[in-house]
Design a protein around this nucleic acid. Sequence first.
DNA 1: CTGATTTGACCTAC
DNA 2: GTAGGTCAAATCAG
Length: 362
Amino acid sequence: MEENRGLILYGCKLAKDLEENLPNLANHRDFFLRSCDEIIMAFSRVKERLSHEVFHRQLDIGIQEWLRSGAGTSTDSQAMNLLNAQAILGHSSSSAFSHGLELIGHETAGGRDLEGGADRWRGDRVPEKPTDALNLSPGTSFKRCRRRKDEADKIVRRVPAPRMGNLDLPPEDGFTWRKYGQKEILGCKHPRSYYRCTHQKLYQCPAKKQVQRLNDDFYTFEVTYRGNHICNIPSTATSATIPPPIEHGTVSQTTAMQPPVSHWLSIEVKPSPQVEATPSILDTLAFRYPGTTGGAGPSSSSNIAASGGGSAGPSGPRFPDYQPVADFADVMFNSGSSSNNSMELIFSSIDENWDNARAKKH
DNA sequence: CTGATTTGACCTAC
DNA sequence: GTAGGTCAAATCAG
C-alpha cells in the first residue's frame, strides 16, 4: 500500500518537475519525451497493481497528501515515498529526470543538532525554516546558525539553462524570486546567484534558492532550494490575486503547502464525489498511450475539449479542465512531426484553446 | 515612484 | 584566516 502511494507521489512529482521546467525544454525534446514516458509508467504501474476500488482510494490519499505537502517541497516521508517509487520502477540515477531535472540530493537535519550548541544567534533575523516562521510571535528573538543550518532541508536539482536569449535567466519554477546576492565561489568557473522568495517580507516566506552553472556544462544550472514556500503565490499571480498575509500560527498545512494554482497539473486535481464516473488521473494523462491504461486508447481522435465542454460521455475523456494537457499530448504524440518546433505547437495550441474556451464563456 | 538588481562590505561557520 | 552567505546602499528598469 505504501508503495502505491509512493508511486502516485512520484508520478505527481515528475509531472510537477516537468511542468516547472517546460520553458527550458524547448530544445530538449528527447528529454521531454522520456519524462512523459516516466510519468505514464509510474501511474500505469499503480494501476496495474491495484484493483479499481483500491486504486481510487489510494489516488485520493496520494493526491491529498501531495497537495497537503506541496509539490516540490519534499518532506522526509515524501522523499522516502519517492525513493520507494523509483525503486519499484527500477530507476536509479538513470531516470529521465536524472539527465535534466535531476533531483540529486535531499538533505535533512538527519538527527544533527542544528538548533543548539554554541552557535550565536541574532534577534534581528527571521528564521529560515518554515516551521520556525509558523511559530513566530512578535518580539520573539531567534538564534541563528548560518552554515550548519543551511545543510538542512536542502534540495539540489539540475535543470537545463536557456541556450538563447538571456542566458543568465534563472530556471522558471513557478515561484517569483528576488536576487539578493551573487558571489564567486572557490573552484567554480561561474558565480553563484542567491535568490529569496519575492514575498519574503510580506509572508516571512523562508524559501531561498541558489543558482549556479556547472563547471563542465555551461548549459546546466544546479539549483539548490532551501526552505519551503509558505506564501503559496505562483509566479503568474497578479498583485490583485495575492491574498493577504496569513497570521503566524494560524496557517493551515493545506493552505500553506499547496502548489502554485496556476499550473495545469496543479489545478483541479482533487477527488470528487463523481470519482466513479470520472476517469482517473491516469486516464487523463495517459489516454493517448496505447497499452498503458484500460481507458481511451490511441485510436480515439477526440480530446478532452472535443467531448463537448466537459459533458461526461460513457467512454470519452471527462476532464474539461485538462484541455491543455489533452492538446499537449495531442501535439506531442499525434502530430507525427519530428520538427523541433513541437513546443511552439504545444503552447500555441494551449493558448488558442484557452482563448477559445474563454470566448465561449462570454 | 516603486520594486528589482548589482555589488562591496560585513557576518559567521569551519 | 578563509569561504560561503547575507545585508544594504547605489543603481537600474518599468
